[in-house]
Amino acid sequence: MPSFPLLLGPFELIGGCVVSENTMFTSKSLQLGAQAIEGLSKVSRFSKSALPVTITQRKSYIQGRELFSTTPTDNADKVNEETQKISVTFVDKDGEEKQIKVPIGMSMLEAAHQNDIELEGACEGSLACSTCHVIVMDVEQYNKLEEPTDEENDMLDLAFGLTETSRLGCQVIAKPELDGLRLALPAATRNFAVDGFKPKPH
């Protein structure tokens, strides 16, 4: 059974930065999925180890509307789980890169929050704000995504620093074809200008 070193919430609270560093959010789809799981584990709330206390938990991912659950004792499943992750690189406002592994089916907003990447999520993935705006840096990767819905476009209308390859992080769901995805946080646009990237309005 895998063990997850957990962050004990109060430590961060004491540090006084629980708000942005450990933002808890739950997407609508996650809430739906949650109905099916009794032992739902929200690792994100407890990311970052701060104490030598490990708590054994059953791990399950709520992914979109599908549920992938692994039996922790099963090695085959563990391997399977590894292969079901893709690599995603976030480029932050200062051009700093951070590569993370994202399980298939998880949204980029949720993945960012689990990995302490500063992506806002004011409406927690319910398509009512534009704060999780990300820019897909490679057009080919962008084209692999499903077309944004009207509702997503309505929110993108209001996004800060919109580009032709802008999406909402909560609507970009990890799938195998997206392995190697590179996402920039909006203020980083000034950094791609150096590499010849020119954001255009839609």
Binding site: L13, I14, G16, C17, V18, V19, T23, M24, F25, A122, C123, E124, S126, L127, A128, C129
Partner: peptide, 17 residues
């Protein structure tokens, strides 16, 4: 949905400082 941001603001208010 637009009011969900209250969760985030509440976490700010709960900040010890």
């Amino acid at each position: 949905e637009t009011k969900i941001v209250i969760n985030q603001f509440s976490r700010v208010a709960h900040n010890e400082r």
